[in-house]
Computed example of a mutant assay.
Amino acid sequence: MSQVRAQLRSVLVVFYCGGMERDPTLRPELRLKARGALGNATGRYEAVQRVALDDGWDLPEEERLLQTEVRLERPRSAISWNRSPDLPFDRSVNPYRGCEHGCVYCFARPSHAWLNLSPGLDFETRLIARPGIDAVLEREIARKSYAVAPIALGTNTDPYQPCEVEHRLMRGVLEVLARWQHPVAITTKGTLVERDLDLLAPMARDGLVRVGISVTTLDPALSRSMEPRAPLPARRLQVIRRLAEAGVPVRVMVAPVVPGLTDPELDAILAAAKEAGAVAASWIMLRLPLEVAPLMQQWLQARVPGRAAKVMARIREVHGGRDYDPAWGRRMRGEGIWAELIARRFDAAVARLGLAVAQPPLRCDLFAPPPRAGDQLTLF
């Protein structure tokens, strides 16, 4: 019986005045302007599920916009390690938890449940900044046991999301890596990467950095709906151009490819990125782990209802009949005829455009670890 009780959730009923709302977890006076998720379902680890119900008083509430809030977390560690055979790196650093870009398809949304927050709207409005992560990182790469290899930035949430303007955590991390000549690979949609060209350009000349810019669609209306607070596609192509002009090698990442919705744009995205200065390209199939699947389905029904059934059918076809197949080797590429067709089109396009798939390895031989306590300092 105790095991049964442990699996059951309590329901916390929040009463409000006024008519019923579009989502039972949201108060009706909230305006969800420029948000990707349309709901805020309780995280999977919470013991209490919150549901708002009309109390019958029918008193109007003052309308207010759902605002972003940023909380601070003191980091105890900076480097996250992984052993995934699907990833070309084994370590990463994430200055922020959650992402205000609000991409409805983001595979990182379920990570917010570990914070007892919703992978829905909480993921894009209740953010965690980790000030001091640069100092923690510097201590970690100074350890005698540390073996240098490229650090990946932007692998979970975007390090150049809007709150970076105020908190400058990514800037601090880059300053540490540049100071000790540590190789780094960056993935972003954000335009703030241009701010750091004074660091990136010299690192690029030494073979220490490369940047991946994610371009999902060239349609500004679709992008604004699907990635509401990310820069528009034309602006991301401009970022590619500015980085390339500064000598920073740029990979265009057609990620994710949404079968039945954005896959027809694959060739056009690659051609536009090549023209802007990209030297390499990659693609990843849409994946919908855990809470992302219902969020994506809700978005499809609300934003592209005429194509919702087709898109979900294609998604299930490439993932073995499920919303998501987590198996290594398949989760990022899919399987079946549609996945094979996308892969063939990508291969043909990069060959035609002269885009590389594999880039030269980043240099590790220049790394000079920070001095440790008790080290003999150099005279010059």
Score class of each variant (00 low, 15 high):
V184A: 03
A185Q: 14
I186T: 02
I186F: 03
T188H: 05
K189E: 03
K189F: 04
G190F: 14
L192N: 04
V193K: 03
E194M: 12
R195Y: 09
D196S: 11
L199R: 14
L199D: 00
L199Q: 00
L199Y: 02
L199V: 01
L200M: 02
L200A: 07
A201L: 06
P202R: 04
M203N: 01
M203V: 00
M203K: 02
A204C: 09
A204Q: 03
R205H: 12
R205Q: 11
R205P: 02
R205M: 01
D206E: 15
G207V: 08
G207E: 07
L208G: 09
V209M: 06
V209Y: 05
V209P: 01
V211R: 03
V211M: 06
V211Y: 13
G212I: 04
I213R: 00
I213N: 01
S214V: 15
S214T: 15
S214W: 05
L218Q: 09
D219T: 11
D219E: 13
P220D: 03
P220T: 10
A221V: 14
S223V: 09
R224S: 13
R224D: 13
R224M: 04
R224E: 14
S225M: 15
S225R: 15
E227R: 03
P228C: 13
P228S: 12
R229N: 15
A230P: 03
P231Q: 07
L232F: 05
L232G: 04
L232Y: 08
P233Y: 10
P233G: 11
A234S: 15
A234V: 13
R235G: 00
R235K: 15
Q238V: 01
Q238F: 15
Q238T: 09
Q238A: 14
I240V: 15
I240K: 00
I240M: 09
R241L: 07
R242D: 08
L243M: 08
L243E: 13
L243Q: 08
E245D: 03
A246P: 04
V248M: 05
V248C: 08
V248H: 04
V248E: 12
P249T: 08
P249A: 12
V250W: 08
V250I: 09
V250Q: 07
V250G: 07
R251H: 10
V252T: 01
V252Y: 06
V254Q: 03
A255F: 10
A255T: 14
P256A: 13
P256K: 07
V258T: 12
V258G: 07
V258R: 00
V258N: 07
P259K: 12
G260H: 14
L261R: 06
D263Y: 10
P264M: 01
E265I: 11
E265V: 13
L266W: 01
A268Y: 08
I269D: 07
L270K: 00
A271Q: 11
